[in-house]
Design a binder for these strands. Structure first.
Lengths: 168, 168
DNA sequence: ATAAATTAGTTAGCATTCTAATTTATTTCA
DNA sequence: TGAAATAAATTAGAATGCTAACTAATTTAT
């Protein structure tokens, strides 16, 4: 179990954590921000924000899924998805459809315009990925992906049951 | 130069980008968010947000630096620092000092309370890092750090380097 | 069959972080 | 010396994403 009230350590706290610059969380933040900044420069020209891009990328793969499925696929919470889809609908990039089969569900479909955009925006993403991994072998890129996934899995396990363990 | 207007590709755009789930940017976002969520659960009890934590961690290392220096060290833009420091000042965790030597500069100092907090919060971070890297060898952890740095360096070239050169 | 639980989506409010533009102070150099 | 450039901090406005609490629809279990 993680993050319970610690007892007073005997050694100086600096010995208890790694260098800030080596913290996995810190490095992940910088990687993510660097990607977002550069991606934005490429997509903004086409009136697509970096946030919207992430939803479009999934929908290009899988059109007509529900909001919940979409949220799960890209690792966003549902309220985030609601707001993002509002923007995409307003920009004419998606439409929402309800069915009688289950009237709670909303299915998301790309508009023809959004489908055309894939031909312009996907290569931008490919180029960004290429620049990010420049000088790295295929094995190194795969290692990076695998290790990041291991970290994600480690932290996901811990998220369960944590809420009740930490009294506010 | 990256992300110039691309010509129309001949093949289907899906061939131009990797699987969303394997995108380095996507994985980095999930890693970062996972860290933040769990960190917050541990620090909130002591009225410190995950955002504030990042500033405190650097100040524990280096007290009495300017806002600009602080921003550079942790890879944040200055307006972000301004907002965060406002909160930290209000919580009684830092004080700001001006000098006559250069009246543009503001030096940031930890209060005694903030210094005491290091003894409580630093072990929480150590535990989080330990959980995140559970089942990974020291070599694997180092590989992950090195590869993320390589990505950061690759993208920094292109984005006018927010994070200049990260010290080892 | 209906009360309880679950599922899908939403709203509200907040934290973090950004870019762009502004203010004030210092330095440079013609 | 004094105008222009640079530097440090700030303000304003926005994007992204969260949690908590809610409504409404469907499923489960007594």
């Amino acid at each position: 179990m993680i993050l319970t009230e610690p007892t007073q350590p005997l050694r100086h706290p600096a010995e208890y954590y790694t260098d800030p610059e080596n913290s996995i969380g810190y490095l992940a933040r910088i990687v993510f921000r660097s990607f977002s900044r550069i991606l934005e420069r490429g997509t903004m020209v086409h009136d697509v924000s970096a946030g919207q891009w992430r939803f479009l990328r999934q929908l290009w793969r899988e059109d007509g899924i529900t909001q919940r499925e979409l949220s799960e696929r890209i690792g966003m919470r549902e309220p985030t998805t609601v707001v993002a889809l509002k923007g995409l609908e307003k920009s004419g990039l998606i439409i929402r459809k309800k069915t009688d089969e289950d009237r709670r569900k909303t299915f998301i479909y790309l508009t023809p315009h959004a489908k055309k955009l894939e031909w312009i925006l996907a290569p931008i993403n490919a180029e960004l990925h290429e620049v990010a991994t420049r000088g790295m072998s295929d094995e190194e890129v795969e290692t990076l992906q695998v290790l990041m996934r291991r970290v994600i899995d480690n932290l996901a396990e811990d998220s369960e049951g944590l809420v009740k363990d930490i009294p506010a």
